[in-house]
Structures are given as C-alpha cells and as structure tokens.
Design a binder for these strands. Structure first.
Lengths: 157, 157
DNA sequence: GGTAGTTTGATGACGCGTCAATAAAACCTA
DNA sequence: TAGGTTTTATTGACGCGTCATCAAACTACC
C-alpha cells in the first residue's frame, strides 16, 4: 500500500496559486473597502446582512449563522460596531436570552454608500475577467468541492 | 452612464460560495495540521520553505518574500518558533543587517512527519474531487484572475 | 571618503478572533 | 413541576498579525 507523499510540483504550484489568489483578492477588496468607507470586511458583511433583513433587524443567533461565525466573535464585533453607532442592540421579545441587532440610520447610509463601489470592484477583479463558460465551470467546481467537504468528515459550522 | 449596482443574486451566491469554500478548506486543513503536529498553517508554511532550501537555511528576507509576508510578521513568528526549537536564527555573513533562519533537527522531523498526511488531506479535499478537465479549467481561471489583478492597480507585495 | 537615502530586521502597542468560563433563560423529561 | 440539559449571549485572557517606529548597515552619489 502506497504511503501518502507530498504533492507533486504541478499540484503544489496550483494549490499555492489558489491560495494566493484568495489572499490577493481579499487584500485588494478590503483595502478599497476600508479606504472608501472605514469598514473592515467583517463589519461590511454584518451591515450587508442587516440591510437585507426586514427593518434592518436580525437576531444575533440568526446573524451569526448566516455569516458562519460563532457567538463570541459576533458579540465582540457587534460591541465595537455599537460604539461606532453603526448598529444597536435591543433585547429580544420572544426569547429573553436573545439579543437583536439593528442597523442604525448611519449604518445603513454607510453600507448603501459603499456597496455599489465594492460590488463594482468584485466585478472588476473577478467576474469581468472570466468568460461565461469559465464562470460556469468555476461555479461547478466550487460547488463540487463544497459538497465533497460536506460529505466527508467536515461536520463543523 | 450606468452607476454601479450591487451584485445580482446569482453573482452574490457564487461570490459567497467561493469565499466560503476557501474558509472551509482552510479550517479543515489547519485543524488537521494542528492535531497531527501542533503546527499552525503559518508555521507549517515556514518549515516547508526551509525544508526545500539547501541545508534548511534561508535568509529572512528571502523567506518573507517567498511567503508574501512582511518582515514584521515573519520576525514575530520566527521568534515564537525559535522558542519552540523549530528553527534557530543565525547572523548573516554577507550582510550584517540580515538574519538567517535555519531548520533544526526537531523542526525537520516535525515537518517531515506531518507533510505526507497534510498533502494527502489536500488531495482528498481538493484534487481528488475534480476531473482532469475541471482541474485544467480551474487552473486557467485562477491564473487569469491573478494576471488580471496584477495588471490592474494591484502593485503591492 | 562622507553624507543622504534605502534596506533589513526587531520591537511594542494595538485590533481582532478564538477559547474557556460564566450566567441566564428555555427546553425536556420523569 | 422540579431537576437536569441545552441554547444563547457576554466576558476576559490570550495568540497572532499589522502598523509605526527604531537602529544598524548597506548603497549611491557628489
């Protein structure tokens, strides 16, 4: 039975390219976001989720599971965002353990102000560089890999 | 002239899937790495670079540029790794400003011990899930996106 | 050769995320 | 309904990466 070995050179380079691409994309997009709005990527993600919710309110639990974050991370971040008046916390009516996170007017103005440019940057650095066929294959591959992950022992989140 | 808008639903989902895939892959691979070897992903990356260098030595500058990290990050990490006897710092002969980072025997044993299993995990969660054609398209797409990034205003690193 | 500017690495402060512990409320079950 | 379990959110300590700063040494130009 063959013992597992290191990746061959072609695979190693491809794996590195895949990871570097993600880092580079994240870096350029987060830089622009921060310059344009003062928001980090995490803060932007929170505001976007809230901006899609009715009345701009979500329960913390819901928000956390949408974002795939644990409660602690969300709690710390929401605490910081509350100090900056981007969101406010309110108590939850149906469940006294819960807490509701609400977008403030300032928070909505911030996310509405920067979302078009951020979206444009994603198109510029990602979607516009690919043909329709390539995009389709890419989407298929991403889905397949995520299915593969879910199917194997990856039960977290 | 049309003002930029938010992504349409299809693009939004695809962008999210792409990012989630990366996070999930990173999480499962880093978890396994940590369990099997006690190494974080960053530490592993340092050891792998050193293990490919002649005599297991690299100048810090070189190591940093291979990894795409700034000097400070590398300096902090190497400092921590030195305390754990995975690497040692030596002074650089040609350039008295420089510092050389050398893999210790323990460091080499650690990386050699875990590299096969880590590589196998990458195959299991990535390469093995894709057909040859898909892999090829995927590689093309990744390269195209990185070229596109480099070509546009992304001058960093 | 001397000086200005650049490169290299280290350091400390700080921000953010993770982990473990805590508390309170809701749920379940005998 | 009382007792134990689970869920929800917060908190503080800690680890790691970033940023600004610093010192030392190299380089280039006059």
């Amino acid at each position: 039975m063959a013992r597992p070995q290191r990746l061959d050179e072609r695979q190693r380079l491809m794996w590195k390219a895949y990871r570097d691409l993600y880092q580079e994309l994240s870096a350029v997009l987060e830089d622009q976001l921060l310059r344009d709005s003062g928001l980090s990527g995490s803060e932007y993600a929170v505001l976007v989720e809230l901006s899609h919710a009715p009345d701009g309110v979500l329960r913390a639990r819901e928000l956390g599971s949408e974002l795939g974050w644990d409660r602690s991370r969300l709690s710390h971040l929401v605490g910081r965002m509350e100090k900056r008046r981007l969101v406010v916390r309110e108590e939850c009516e149906e469940d006294a353990r819960g807490s509701m996170v609400r977008l403030t007017d300032a928070g909505r103005a911030t996310v509405d102000g920067v979302a078009p440019e951020h979206s444009e940057a994603i198109r510029r650095y990602f979607f516009n560089a690919l043909s329709t066929d390539e995009l389709e294959t890419f989407a298929t591959v991403v889905d397949r890999l995520r299915d593969n992950l879910a199917q194997q022992g990856v039960t977290e989140r």
